[in-house]
C-alpha cells in the first residue's frame, strides 16, 4: 500500500504512452456513450448475417407493461432479469422513459441516433488514428516487446503465485527490472492486442461500403450481426477493464498513479530503491 515514507521518484511511463492514454480517455468516453445511443436504436443482438425484430436475439434490453407500470428487463439467451430503473425503463426529470440505456450513460443524453452516430465517428477517428500511430511507434521503440509481452521467467509457477499474492495483498507498486507485473502485462496486452483491434475491425464491418470492398473482414466475424454482437461484447470487456483499472489506481494511490501518467514519474515505496 502507499505509505507516507517516500522512496525514490523513478521514470515509469514514456511520453507516447502518456499522450495516448489521455487521448484515449477522451475518445473512449465519447465512443462508449455514443455507442450506447446507437445500441438504443435497436437494443437487440443476434448471431449470423442478418437479424431484425422477427429473428431470435441472444440479447434484448426492452420494456413491457405490467400492472404496476412499465418494467425494464434484460434477456440474455433466454434468462430474464428485471432491470427497471437502470435498463429498459428509467426516470429522467420525474418522467418515466423507456429506452435500453438510460440518459446518464448515453451521449447525447436526449436520444438522437444521428447525433450519437456523429459523436461515435468523431471518437472513432481520434481513437483509430491515435491507436494506429501508438501501435506502430510502440513496435518501433520496442515498448510492446519489452514491456507488454510477459518474460519467460514471469510465467514460472513461483512468479505467477508471487504476483497473484502481491495483488491480493494490494501491493502494487514495485521496482525491479520490469515496468509491469505479470497480471498487468496480461491485461494491458489483452486490451491492446486483442480487445482494441477487435473493436476497430468489427466497427469497420458496420460499414456496408467496407463490407463490399473487404468481405473477408466480415467473414472473420461470421457475418454482419455477429460482428455487431462482438463489437458490443468487446466494448463491454473494455468497460470491465476500465472499472478494474480505476479501482486499482485508487488502491495503489491515485495521486502517485495519476502523476505518473502526466509527468511519467512514479514514486516507489520507501526502502524500495533501485
Amino acid at each position: 500500500m502507499s505509505s507516507n515514507a517516500k522512496g525514490p521518484l523513478v521514470k515509469r511511463h514514456r511520453l507516447s504512452t502518456r499522450v495516448w492514454h489521455w487521448t484515449n480517455m477522451v475518445a473512449i468516453f465519447l465512443l462508449i456513450g455514443s455507442g450506447a445511443t446507437i445500441f438504443n436504436a435497436h437494443p437487440r443482438l443476434y448471431w449470423g448475417e442478418y437479424g431484425a425484430n422477427f429473428d431470435p436475439a441472444w440479447l434484448v434490453i426492452d420494456d413491457r407493461q405490467s400492472a404496476t407500470g412499465p418494467r425494464g428487463f434484460v434477456n440474455i439467451g433466454g434468462a430474464e432479469f428485471d432491470t427497471t430503473g437502470v435498463l429498459g425503463v428509467f426516470e429522467k426529470g420525474g418522467e418515466t422513459r423507456m429506452r435500453a440505456f438510460p440518459h446518464w450513460v448515453t451521449i447525447p443524453a436526449e436520444y438522437s441516433l444521428s447525433a450519437g452516430r456523429r459523436y461515435h465517428l468523431l471518437g472513432a477517428w481520434i481513437f483509430g488514428v491515435a491507436g494506429f500511430v501508438y501501435f506502430f511507434w510502440s513496435l518501433f521503440n520496442r515498448h510492446i516487446q519489452r514491456d507488454l509481452i510477459p518474460r519467460k521467467w514471469q510465467l514460472t509457477p513461483a512468479c505467477v503465485r508471487a504476483d497473484i499474492k502481491n495483488h491480493i495483498k494490494l501491493n502494487f507498486i514495485h521496482s525491479g527490472t520490469e515496468k509491469y507485473s505479470l497480471l498487468q502485462k496480461l491485461s494491458y496486452a489483452g486490451v491492446i492486442l486483442v480487445i482494441l483491434p477487435v473493436l476497430v475491425a468489427t466497427g469497420l464491418t458496420m460499414s456496408p461500403n467496407m463490407n463490399a470492398a473487404w468481405p473477408w473482414l466480415l467473414d472473420i466475424f461470421g457475418g454482419r450481426q455477429s460482428a455487431r454482437s462482438l463489437h458490443f461484447i468487446a466494448a463491454f470487456l473494455l468497460i470491465a477493464f476500465i472499472f478494474v483499472h480505476l479501482i486499482l489506481v485508487v488502491l495503489a494511490g491515485p495521486y502517485n498513479e495519476i502523476r505518473s501518467m502526466i509527468t511519467g514519474k512514479l514514486r516507489l515505496p520507501a526502502g524500495d530503491g533501485r
Binding site: 436504436a41 435497436h42 437487440r44 448475417e49 437479424g51 431484425a52 452516430r117 458496420m206 454482419r224
Partner: peptide, 9 residues
C-alpha cells in the same frame, strides 16, 4: 443484405 442505420439487417 439490407443494413438499417438502427442496426438491424
Amino acid at each position: 443484405r439490407h443494413d438499417c442505420v438502427e442496426g438491424w439487417s
